[in-house]
């Protein structure tokens, strides 16, 4: 097996081992921390489909993260207050069931990604970065000034949503749910990157003219990739909201987009396990540097600068060597 595969297996097993150890020594906070890692990694896995495979530098992925969060917040708040979401044309009730919320989060993020992608992908390069950023801001300002769901204050959900057969209030069980979803997403992305669709997508990133010349339309490939990417990030948003039992417009800020991008870059762009490594590193930094100094973002900035300027393969690149570095 390649070294990168080994690094990946160790990361995934390590991510499972830490909360199990924390369970054994009764440290629920560590389990919550690990759950955060898993959810943020999932958001990164989503972005990585667009960014790593498709080369689409989206600075607006907070839109999907936030939509997932609000899908959870809105459904759960209606279920919490026993008011229907809509009475006309059909009666729609709120829901406290995770699978229903996930489905709604995925569907909404997917539809919005389709719309944003269809418009944004007409541009490229810097214009693409800017237009995705602008869509992000659009959603952010809308969420702030729309008073029905808390506006600037956000929405609190008092009890975590339910998953049939599990007690999601137990940290380790909720961790398990998130972990399984992350593993499924990783499996999907690694299959995707080796499928003919994934290969064509990577080819379109490297040389769009050639791809066009053999009869494949890069626009459609990118649009599909953007939608898949949005759906995964949206799902992560729903889980993140459930972890905190709180959603607010801060999920839509462009700093959120920037942070999701940081996970992907710290870990290594275009590598299946990159976002996992990046999210682990980010949370560890936040936890330890944040404990050392209130101003830990300075160190984060310096580290990010160092990775961009000098270590372009990211953490996985350093651990697994450069032989498989992408383009």
């Amino acid at each position: 097996m390649r070294r990168e595969t080994w690094v990946g297996i160790i990361l995934v097993l390590g991510l499972l081992a830490v909360p199990l150890w924390a369970l054994a020594v009764d440290e629920p906070y560590t389990i919550t921390l690990a759950t955060r890692v898993v959810i943020l990694a999932l958001a990164g896995v989503g972005l990585n489909v667009a960014l790593g495979l498709g080369g689409l530098v989206s600075l607006g992925h907070a839109v999907f993260f936030g939509l997932g969060g609000y899908a959870m917040g809105i459904l759960a708040s209606h279920a919490q207050s026993y008011t229907p979401l809509a009475e006309w044309p059909i009666l729609i009730e709120g829901s406290k069931s995770m699978p229903v919320i996930w489905l709604v989060a995925c569907a909404v993020s997917g539809l919005v990604a389709l719309a944003i992608g269809a418009l944004s992908l007409r541009t490229s390069g810097v214009y693409f970065i800017m237009i995705t950023l602008a869509f992000g801001q659009m959603f952010y300002f809308f969420s702030i000034s729309w008073p029905a769901y808390g506006g600037e204050d956000g929405l609190s959900i008092y009890v975590r949503n339910e998953f049939p057969g599990l007690n999601t209030l137990d940290p380790i069980q909720f961790f398990g749910v998130c972990y399984v979803i992350l593993c499924l997403a990783l499996l999907l992305v690694s299959k995707l990157s080796r499928s003919s669709f994934g290969l064509a997508l990577v080819a379109a990133r490297q040389n769009a003219e050639r791809v066009q010349a053999v009869g494949i339309e890069p626009y459609r490939l990118r649009l599909v990739a953007f939608v898949i990417s949005g759906v995964i990030t949206g799902l992560a948003g729903a889980l993140f909201a459930d972890l905190n039992r709180f959603v607010s417009p801060s999920m839509f800020t462009w700093q959120t987009s920037g942070e999701i991008m940081i996970f992907v870059i710290l870990g290594g762009v275009g590598r299946v396990m990159g976002p996992v490594a990046g999210a682990i590193m980010f949370i560890l930094l936040e936890h330890f540097l944040g404990g050392l100094s209130e101003y830990w973002h300075i160190y984060l900035g310096a580290l990010l600068l160092g990775v961009v300027l000098f270590a372009r393969g990211g953490l996985i690149g350093v651990l697994a060597g450069r032989e498989v570095a992408h383009d």
Binding site: V126, G258, I265, H297, L300, G301, A302, L304, L305
Partner: peptide
């Protein structure tokens, strides 16, 4: 490429903002 520029200058924002706060 633009991705590297976005990230490196994002890193500069973090450094400047926290430096000024400090």
């Amino acid at each position: 490429d633009h991705l590297d520029q976005v990230l490196a200058t994002f890193a500069l924002i973090l450094i400047f903002s926290e430096g000024t706060r400090w």
